[in-house]
Structure formats: C-alpha cells, structure tokens
Amino acid sequence: MTLRRAATILLLLMPGLGLILALIGAVVYIAVAQSFGLYSLMGESAFSLAFWSDTMGKKAFDKAVRYSIYVGVLSAIFSVILAYPLAIWLRKPFAGSVTIGAVLKAPLLVHGLVAAFLYINIISYNGLLNQVMQGLGIWDGPKRLQNDRNAIGVLILQTWKNMPFALLLLTGAVQAISDDVLDAARDLGAGSWARFRKVIAPLTVSGLQAAMVIIFIGALADFSFQTIAGPTNRQSLAQLMVNFKGRGDWHSAAVVGVSMMAIALIGSALLAVAARMIMRGRLK
C-alpha cells in the first residue's frame, strides 16, 4: 500500500519535477562545475577552489549579495502588500470589478524593457515629473532622479511589473474561501480585521508564499531593470556576473551565478517560512 502510494507519487512527479531535474539539473551541474574551473570556454580546464575564494573575497561580491537581497525582498513585500487588499476587495464581483481587474493586470502586457524606458523618460532631468513639479512651484529646479541611490526606481519597476502577478495568485486564493466560512466568523462576532487575521490570512498563506517566492527570485536575479534604472554605485549579482563574463572570466561568473542560485533557493525557503509564521502565528 505505502509502496504503491510512493510509486503513484513518483509517477505523478515525473512529467513536471522529473523533467526539470533531468534537463535543468544538467545545466546546474555545468554551472557548478564551471565555478570550480571545469568546462572552461577558454581552453584549459582544471579543478580549482581559487575562483570561489577569490570571488568571495571581493568587496564587490559582498556588496552585490546584500544589494540583490535588498531588491529581492522589498520587491516581493511591496507587491504582495499592494495586491492583498485589492484581492480581498475584488473577491466578490460587483459593477466594474472586471474592468478594475483588467486595468490592474495591464502591466503584465507591457514588456519590462519598454516599461523601463518609459519610466526613465518620465523621471529624467528635464522629463515630465520634473516639469510638473517645477510648474507647480514645488521644486525650484530640476532634480536628478534617474539611477537613484536607494534603488527606488528599480523597486517601482519591479512592483509595477510583479504586483499584477501577486494579484492574480491572491485573487484565486481569496476567491476559494467559501462564504459560509466567512459568514460563520461574522456570526461569531469577528470584525473585518479579525476575519482577515483568523480566516483569510491562514487560508491564503500558500498563495501568498507562491507569489512571494516567485517575485523574490525574479527580482534577486534582475539585470535589465538594474542596469537601466538602478543605482550606478551598486551592482546586482546578475550585473556582477555579466561583468566577469564580459572580461572572459567565465569561472568567476559561474561562482556568482551559483551563489545567486543558492541565495534564491535558501531565501525563498526562508521567505516562505516567514510568511507562514506571520500569517498563521496569529491564528490562535
């Protein structure tokens, strides 16, 4: 019986997880091997720990790790914080709710690169925002907002692009809660905040986890938003990796790549646990 059950589960996992492990597993293996000096694209291959020790000893690496985690975590949090109330609001259809849902999801349809150039355009030195603020007399002169030091531009773009995704997932999760559960809570005298804490939050936690994890991984590995709108005194991990690659230092690039994978996996596990604790911890 248990054997049969195990076989069933394995069989079910084959087309999805199995395919991933077989194909992407091989790619991961190459990346890891490259970080140890093997599979060289420049000629000689020899096993070496030097690329790891050299790269990890670099100031730039340390800063890139911290910066990428900062962008990854904040993008995930901002996206779900904005998406949550909207999802609850849109749980039951009302006049105009379909339109609003569509408007909110529209950024999914705009390519990230286009979004980035439009954003830069709006905030540029002589751009729309600066002209409006000066026109209203709020600012005396144009401000340099592009590539701001705190990566606000990157966070805005990430949230703009990812909030709809979180909304999509959370709407599904919130809609799956049946009315009788919420009504029962109401009958027991729970206010709307209590209903959120005790009913909605625990029941939507896995949707929340999925959204946060996927957004975190994407933002952690961001290259294009960072190089267009990000601070010029910081490098993301992907940027550092591309810099190494551009110098022909494939092995150090692989070290950064493998570190990025490790951070993504560990970070998403931690985020998932944190989300569960926050959302379920309140359920007494």
């Binding site: 059950r5 195990a6 589960i9 996992l13 999805g16 997880l17 991933i20 492990l21 194909l23 992407i24 597993g25 091989a26 790619v27 991961v28 190459i30 990346a31 994890v213 996927i214 991984i217 994407g218 590995a221 290259f223 992907a238 990796m241 591309v242 690659k245 692989a254 790549g257 990025m260 994978m261 993504a264 996996l265 998403s268 596990a269």
Partner: peptide, 26 residues
C-alpha cells in the same frame, strides 16, 4: 509525503538558474 517541501523547492530550479547560463547550456 516526506521530502514534499524539498520537491517544491526543486521545482523552482528553472527560475533560479541565471539567464545566460540557461541560454547557453540549456
């Protein structure tokens, strides 16, 4: 089942591998 969380995490692999590595080697 045991290892379910691990399986869930491993499912994320394609998202986690840096783009240029997937591009060249995959």
């Amino acid at each position: 089942f045991p290892g379910r969380e691990l399986a869930k995490t491993l499912c994320l692999l394609p998202l986690v591998v840096p783009a240029f590595i997937t591009a060249i080697f995959f």
